[in-house]
Design a binder for these strands. Sequence first.
DNA 1: CTACGTTGGCTAATCGGAATAGCTTTTTGG
DNA 2: CCAAAAAGCTATTCCGATTAGCCAACGTAG
Lengths: 203, 203
Amino acid sequence: MPRAGLDRATLIAAASELADEVGFAGLTMGLLAERVGVRTPSLYKHVDSLDALQRGVGLQAVRDIGAVLTRAAVGRSGPEAVHAIAETFRKWALDHPGRYAASVRAPRAEDDEYQAVARETVQILFDVVAGFGLTDERAIDAVRALRTVIHGFLGLESDGAFQMERDPSDSYRFVIDTLINGMRAEAATGGSDTSPLRAGQGS
Amino acid sequence: MPRAGLDRATLIAAASELADEVGFAGLTMGLLAERVGVRTPSLYKHVDSLDALQRGVGLQAVRDIGAVLTRAAVGRSGPEAVHAIAETFRKWALDHPGRYAASVRAPRAEDDEYQAVARETVQILFDVVAGFGLTDERAIDAVRALRTVIHGFLGLESDGAFQMERDPSDSYRFVIDTLINGMRAEAATGGSDTSPLRAGQGS
DNA sequence: CTACGTTGGCTAATCGGAATAGCTTTTTGG
DNA sequence: CCAAAAAGCTATTCCGATTAGCCAACGTAG
């Protein structure tokens, strides 16, 4: 009985592909085992549980997203950077529906590693927002707004919630542009309220 | 062995409450049975399956949301109506996390009843958007934008994705205000072409 | 009021997927 | 070459959903 040469990373990679094919909810130990040519129980030599596997896929997805967004944002700033990030994120999510769903899964507050990776990705957004001249609380608001719009739209779109005859790409641009205009306006009027902001994770 | 006097509606109501307590994912036939004082298999006399139960909870949740939003919007228009709807929706979602999660569940394209109910709720948003003078494609964009922002924000918030020391309520208002400004601006430019909102570097 | 069909509840059993136990073989380091 | 760790496997257990089949409760015609 030759060995299959599996390890955690390989399993997570295979699970990620599988999730993109059958949906994150359809990702099952049996299916993954079949995919990698092994019996189900053997997987437990490399991952602790299905939950751990899902977490691994989600964590890797967030890392991938961070890398992709970083590449998209480099050399750009302001509205151009926002558009690049928004479009890149959407394309990635549409290309990798399972991974995207995995990345959205509730991160468990006590999961430090997840929090750290998420923080890194959110940092990209802070850098972009800083380019608008937004700081402190307004920067937080703007980053939250960006995440809100991107996740909100992708969530609805991937749920098939847009039924009308209108290219979602155009609607997406509308929302993003609206947000950009809002940030521009906010930066122009200069944030009037100021409260100290404390350290935290996420945004 | 006295009868419990159950029926489909009672079960869905009980399941809704239960979902708010244990989370939509934690809603289980066994738990529901215990809650209504009956053995698990007995539930199948009233609902076809767990999936059907979940669908029922989601459907009812969408109906409830529609009713609540309608009440919130009556007598208001424009920005005031948008704020009322946004705040009401958020409060409802925070008060009923399980039902909210149920309402978001992918609606299945072939489910005509669900589609009809969802359409009714979306209609409320169209009415509000019409108050801004937006029509046709721009109205669709604006409605999608509203849904995007509301669902996006509530999704992130309920996932605990906002970790920084900043009241989410304030950030929520920021996003909503930004969107309102965008709709106002869009209405002002008269929607002359498909991309009047281009967020160029210039003005 | 009473027999009878329908309805609702129950116990027992099946099924599918996750997870564990315990055995066997490969790999690896000395 | 040998012992221990690592990686597979089969057999089993567990749990939640679901089905089968039995029996009591209800409600209604005669």
